[in-house]
Amino acid sequence: MDAAPLSDIRVLEFGHYIAGPFCGQILADQGADVIKVEPPEGDASRGTETLSYNDVYFHALNRNKRSVMLDLKSDAGQEALVALLRTADVVVTNYAVGIPERLGFGYAQVRDVNPRLVYVHASGFGNDSPYAKRPAFDGIIQAMSGLVHLTGEPDGMPMQAGLFVPDHVTGLYAALAVMFGLSRRGAAGEGSFTDLSMLDSMMSLLGPCLAEAVQLGVSPMRVGSKVRRSYAGTYTAADGYVYLAPMTLRMWTALAGVVDAPELLPYFAAPAADTRLDHRDELDRTIEAWTRAHPVAEVVARMGDVGVPCSPIFTVDALAADPHVRHRAMVRSIPLEGGDGEVIVPGSPLPVVGTAFSTGPPSIGQHTKEILGTAPDPDPAARPARSE
């Protein structure tokens, strides 16, 4: 990148776990000076053992930031907070509703200090929801948003997604809200407040499912490894699984040739005569009888030769070794907190500043003196211990 888009923007991140820190990291990757404001005990997701699960979890969300440690329950902490707010452009928090106000950085409070602040508060349900005071972690939002209901086999239990989808989607929306707020400030010269709900963020992904349920009276159900309303899905191979998507007439005809099953052809004989979904189980059995007899690599290669979209079902370690992933630099490493060693993290799908992966997450309060001119003075017992 030539010029960092956010090099003149200072962000105060009052974040923990995923959504707030993920938003902050996206902004830091674009050159923003992201200051992680932490209590003496630090972000609740900090690890206490090097390269434990919690430690790598924290590293994957907090690189390239600076840390200020403030006890916001003290007068000195509040004075330092006001000084920080006066220098900031953006405040991002994913603390529960009511906590920012209790700790002195609610929107009405910070607006009095700096009316040009772009403020984004991500919470489970939003500040004005009847559920505002309910605790909401990623799994709660998965359960309420329809994601769990729509995931799993048709005759099986609803299943959670294998990743923290609502947390990350909300973090992405938070970063968008920051950019929209900065654009508005540039045009109108005033700050803004975005009340962002995790549940709302996930509902935005429902697409046609909402109309199906509310207008058409058809409640969408789980379809397992198939794709709803499209002829695509997962099939068992001799040594693993593949995903096949013979969506068009040409692809379907080619697939029938590869699996040597001309009896498939009448079910999709013309663009306006596609009856495959009405006979899906029967057709899938024919296709899978062939895929089960061939290894994944052969299935993918033979389908690829005739232009039928096909992919292995990657494990995470297989994905990390894939040539595309390596070529696109989506497996990166950053220094461990303290600089002794490194930890593997996902790359960014966007261009980022050159320092994005050269700086690991800060230790608690590492930059307090640098930013505020005062050294941290926490209760040593409150700091999490790290065992090397």
Rank of each mutant, 00 (worst) to 15 (best):
R280M: 13
H16W: 13
V120R: 10
D71I: 04
L199W: 01
T315N: 03
Q78M: 02
G339D: 01
V258P: 01
R86D: 15
P361A: 14
H367S: 06
D89L: 04
C310S: 08
M251N: 14
M221I: 15
P346G: 04
A385W: 10
H294R: 13
Q160V: 14
Y241E: 11
Y243M: 10
F105P: 11
P21I: 11
S204Y: 03
V299Q: 05
D33C: 06
A19M: 09
V120D: 04
S358N: 09
P362I: 00
F137I: 12
Y95H: 15
A293P: 11
S311T: 11
G42S: 10
A136Y: 08
D29R: 05
A356H: 01
G338S: 10
Q109T: 07
V306A: 01
G42F: 11
L372G: 03
R228Q: 14
G146L: 06
P262Y: 00
D260Q: 13
G307M: 01
P266T: 13
A88L: 06
L199G: 11
P271A: 02
D239Q: 00
W252I: 05
G126F: 04
V113Y: 05
T236E: 10
T50I: 15
F164K: 13
A188P: 04
V120M: 03
P351V: 09
V331D: 01
L84T: 12
P166S: 06
G20C: 07
D43V: 05
A175H: 00
P166V: 04
Q366M: 08
A237V: 00
S358F: 00
W252F: 02
G77V: 05
N114D: 06
T170A: 10
G156P: 03
P361F: 01
T253F: 00
Y119L: 07
L6E: 04
E282V: 11
E337F: 10
R285A: 15
A60W: 09
S333Y: 02
A174S: 12
L81Q: 06
H59R: 02
D71Q: 05
G77M: 05
I18A: 06
S7H: 13
P362W: 01
V296H: 00
R332E: 12
P40F: 07
A318Q: 14
F125M: 08
R302E: 14
L172F: 15
R222Y: 04
E337N: 12
Y235T: 06
T236W: 00
A261G: 05
I371M: 06
D260E: 09
K133M: 15
V37A: 08
G139W: 13
E38L: 07
A232M: 07
R46K: 06
V120Y: 02
V91Q: 02
G162P: 07
H279A: 12
T50Y: 02
V214M: 13
Q25N: 10
P246Q: 08
T291N: 02
L103C: 08
P246H: 00
C23K: 03
T374M: 09
P266M: 11
A161Q: 12
P346L: 04
D322Y: 04
G156D: 10
G156A: 01
E49M: 11
G152H: 03
E288I: 03
G365K: 02
S7D: 10
M202A: 12
M144C: 14
N94R: 14
S230R: 15
P5C: 03
R134K: 13
V306I: 00
V345Y: 00
D317Y: 04
V37G: 09
G189V: 02
G31A: 07
F180E: 15
P384T: 08
S67G: 13
S183E: 14
G240V: 01
L182C: 01
